[in-house]
Design a protein around this nucleic acid. Structure first.
Lengths: 212, 212
DNA sequence: CTTTTATGAATGAAGG
DNA sequence: CCTTCATTCATAAAAG
């Protein structure tokens, strides 16, 4: 299944020379992450709309099938499969082993409360071992705590054994249950559908791929 | 409404680096004219697809009208509303793309103060595009503002490289640059129109394209 | 290469 | 408002 959001490292463009010798005040077309995110959402909206329209079409077509007025195949599914290239990948921070070790250590030291100031310090410290931002640190602690908690909670359910309320998911105490997959799918498909949504417009199919 | 042409100036963007010490080699997210052009085409393609689908839908609907088997208005926003009630209903509200677009639009309109009355109106409006409550709207605005703020603060602090910590966050840089407005508006317009499109709105085709 | 898992990041909601 | 938490989303990494 082609992921619409497949990773695709954004190439860092060289700022082109902007030939005007005007004191070097040339503009460059720059897009922030946020702007890209906006674009992404916009496209997602289109994808959703297209999906809805297709759905409507299918319904109508189905009706017509009953009436024996089938209009013929308007879809051409397989044609568009090569579309899935992404505008940008949302790059995500990955802690270096050293950073991770330090973080883990800090976490164990019991400071369950990484205050704002503390975060700054930690970030500063860790930045000597690799790229990192305060947000990264903040998120890390958030996640660490949440997941630690959940794990413990899961382990505790060993005693009470009170039936299926929490959906005891797996024998291997995974963190992710089948439920998640289910919920998740509804979103992902909406974004992807547009890809499959191909149409018999020649002009369209040729253009419908992203920067690569 | 079409403000695509309104803003063409580029804002020079901050260096995303947070790349510390490491020689201070920051990358900038740059998008070339060519890439932007590709994007435009891409979006235009979506617009075209939507148009075509609508056209088809109209045709089909017309046919069925003749047959006297009119189905009536099909449901829009199937993403959440119809699928939503499995046995395990989702406990947390998730805005549909369309709702999100509208919310973003409202947010951008600057009214930092969504009064109680306003909330009601918005909720009422949005409820046509999916389930939503006043609390949802309220929370959304709260969160949106808070996070927007934090983001700007974070983005601003990306200037230091050779020194360690510089505790800076004074500049009141606006969250959205001109470019954003550009993207925003176009996407809002499209979303709005496309929304109407969900119910066989005959006049959608006039507005559903942008980007020349 | 495709599928699965681990985990960084985003976000709706609650508390103060 | 701001902070915190719980849940979900998306993707890098690992497994197949």
């Amino acid at each position: 299944m082609m992921e619409w959001d497949k990773q695709h490292q954004q190439k860092e463009q060289e700022i082109e020379g902007n030939g005007n010798g005007n004191g070097g005040v040339g503009f460059v077309k720059v897009m922030t992450d946020e702007q890209l995110e906006t674009l992404r959402k916009q496209i997602a909206v289109y994808a959703t709309i297209c999906e809805q329209l297709v759905e409507m079409h299918k319904n109508l077509t189905a009706q017509q099938d009953l009436a024996g007025v089938r209009m013929g195949n308007l879809y051409c599914d397989p044609l568009m499969t090569s579309v899935g290239h992404k505008i940008t990948a949302r790059q995500r921070w990955t802690p270096t082993p050293v950073q991770l070790q330090i973080l883990e250590q800090l976490f164990d030291q019991g400071n369950g409360t990484p205050s704002k100031q503390k975060i700054k310090e930690i970030t500063s410290e860790l930045s000597q071992h690799g790229q990192i931002s305060e947000t990264n640190v903040y998120n890390w602690f958030q996640n660490r705590r949440a997941r630690s908690k959940r794990k413990q909670q899961n382990a505790t359910s060993n005693n009470a054994e009170s039936e299926v309320e929490t959906e005891v998911d797996s024998p291997k105490d995974k963190k992710k249950g089948p439920q998640d997959q289910l919920l998740q799918s509804q979103q992902n498909t909406s974004a992807q559908r547009a890809e499959d949504l191909c149409f018999q417009n020649p002009e369209m199919s040729s253009d419908l791929h992203f920067l690569d």
